[in-house]
Design a protein around this nucleic acid. Sequence first.
DNA 1: TAGGTTGAGTTCCTTTTTGGAACCTGTCAA
DNA 2: TTGACAGGTTCCAAAAAGGAACTCAACCTA
Lengths: 163, 163
Amino acid sequence: MKWDDLDKQPCSLARALSVVGDRWTLVILRDCFLGVRRFDDLEKRLGITRHVLADRLKKLVEHGVLYKTPYQQKPVREEYRLTEKGLALHPVVMALVHWGDQHMADERGAPIVHVHKQCGQFMQPVTVCSCCGEPVTARDIRVEVGSGWQDRSSELIPEKDCC
Amino acid sequence: MKWDDLDKQPCSLARALSVVGDRWTLVILRDCFLGVRRFDDLEKRLGITRHVLADRLKKLVEHGVLYKTPYQQKPVREEYRLTEKGLALHPVVMALVHWGDQHMADERGAPIVHVHKQCGQFMQPVTVCSCCGEPVTARDIRVEVGSGWQDRSSELIPEKDCC
DNA sequence: TAGGTTGAGTTCCTTTTTGGAACCTGTCAA
DNA sequence: TTGACAGGTTCCAAAAAGGAACTCAACCTA
């Protein structure tokens, strides 16, 4: 299967990855979450080549994850900012950063820490159930077919558990 | 910057993406979380080419995300299973699926739904603060330098907020 | 007013990665 | 003896990424 066909699968993860699943996109979005907004700043910080950066930004704008807005006239200069759809990716970024902190950090520990403005404490992201509020892990979840399912591939959910 | 240098950055997201940030890895891991374990099953379900699949599985084993374990002798056949490090990626997968459900689904809704075994309800993942337990969004977080920081690039955290 | 700088890209060419198909290796079953 | 199965490897063409140079319009500076 070609990568561009991934978003046609009946799978939300595949659809999400068709937007953010390439080599550079989430690194770009990390910087957007840190407040970086300009093409040149992104290029300097990321060490990405300019035409890949231009391409990724265009796609993110097309997908409604970022939007361009002018910050000066004459000459017109535009910056990229997160839309609500883009801001909604924050749990993804936090989850990845947390996994990196836990499993990929060196002996010095986390390079960046997060402060929760409301409670003022250093925090890690915890994933909880929207119904009962308890923390969930892979072992606590069972998967079922939902309304968006097309039964043309009825074998898509195996019987086995992940562990 | 080359992709292979990404894990040398003082950034947990970059380090995480050096493992799971390519086009196919998270799709493979999605199937692992669904209980798919064998090379052939992965190939059939994913539509990935065999040598990319072999390469990604090898890398995931090298990084300790999956492990190989024999399920028969003569001939030896091995399957791939998630390690604890791999299971710890579940919040990442859940966050991506949830974002896909919310922002990339068609009119039919989510193809797959999750049941929380403990409470028996359909659930969505919610990211909360590890200290106060309140839900957190991008706007609720402030970033600070942590112990793993190397100050060779002191400009890495801009002053601006993300929105 | 000539020359340099800035921001945001494009273009061109080379190197790496994918996609797609075919091939290989043990074992078992017909 | 042939074929199937599982789990790969090998080969080649096509697509994507890396790297450097070029563009363009407006501004700054001497």
